[in-house]
Design a protein around this nucleic acid. Structure first.
Lengths: 194, 194
DNA sequence: CGTCTATTTGAATGTACTCAAAAGCGGTGG
DNA sequence: CCACCGCTTTTGAGTACATTCAAATAGACG
């Protein structure tokens, strides 16, 4: 991924001029994150949006018993950030961890506000991006309610084949909402049938 | 609820002038919806955002077996709309049904665009509103994964006591992701313990 | 008052979990 | 380069939470 892919990414939502693009990328800085390190960690007060150039991440909460609850995976050309933290100006309740050595472009929430003031078109772009994220959460919720564990697993593999290549079964199991043991058994019984 | 409550609702996100407010409400129209009728129905091509003055709604999908999957309830001073439909300019996959005789203020997606062009501050307001919705979906997802059915039920009653007064158990059961039969049994065993 | 829907109750069932142990795999250091 | 350690994945047995189906009861509405 490159700056050019970022430009294409945001241009899906609104046309921007070269001048606006220049102002846009001037606010971004590159950050490298090693595998297992955190882009955002629980309790931190770092508010920003990140565009993934290389690598992948998982964002998750910790539940009352200290277990992970994975909200999402993110790969190249996706965005990650802690909306709740940005909205409420609170320390993050969320962890975002690199699952591979990764590179991201970061814009702070403050700079984002400056950018929106200068070029309102970017407020539009981010509004539409957030809408897309919201729709994908609705879809996720719908599937948790109406799909069986088997169906959720196959849906994930169908829509995001790279997940199988790059994410451990433990994390996939967590994402679809089953134990690693049960995912293993599902995979076995699926193989026996095919 | 009144126009004044709508003004307060949006003023939480950004300051607006009297002039901007006037332009804003000029785009809205009042719509009355009888109990069990639909604000949005599957397959319709009506794209808008609705602010609830009076009454309540449930938004839901139909799954492969024709069963409801309730995504949200909405009461006075809340917003409802079909983001997926607005974003993709597609017929709605979602149903939004009035659970009481209701009144809403509606702005069409087209008028919303005109409004944003005239006063970019409203693009900001809607961006922040959508962020709040997104955060609430993240919260919902987190709880589906980490709370037991009992905990989800009590969390709902604690956060939204009016739900118990105004929504049938059948719909509450659907929302928290259990069968009506099981919710009935949970309630009984809870009473026996207290 | 009668009809239709919502809620309750019970019995049998199923899906997914817990716990425990073995097997596999990957990274690190000697 | 290989041996070891820690983590992931597999496997099995027993269990729990929630479901399905069926039937009875209660409640809402015309």
């Amino acid at each position: 991924m490159s700056l050019e892919s970022l430009r294409q990414n945001i241009s899906k939502y609104a046309q921007i001029t070269d001048n606006q693009w220049q102002d846009f990328i001037d606010y971004f800085s590159l950050k490298r994150i090693k595998k297992k390190d955190f882009l955002i960690a629980f309790g931190q007060h770092c508010q920003f949006e990140a565009y993934i150039l290389k690598g992948c991440f998982r964002s998750y909460f910790l539940d009352a018993h200290g277990k992970d609850v994975i909200l999402s995976f993110a790969f190249e050309d996706w965005w990650q950030g802690d909306m709740a933290s940005q909205l409420n100006h609170m320390p993050s309740q969320m962890n975002i961890q690199a699952l591979e050595d990764s590179e991201v472009l970061i814009i702070s929430s403050q700079d984002k506000e400056l950018l929106f003031e200068k070029h309102p078109v970017f407020e539009r772009i981010f509004r539409l991006m957030i809408m897309r994220h919201l729709v994908s959460y609705q879809d996720r919720l719908y599937k948790i309610y109406s799909y069986s564990a088997q169906e959720r697993y196959h849906d994930l593999l169908l829509k995001h084949p790279q997940v199988l290549q790059r994410i451990s079964q433990k994390h996939i199991a967590n994402y679809i909402g089953v134990t690693p043991e049960f995912l293993s058994k599902m995979r076995k019984s699926f193989l026996n049938l095919h």
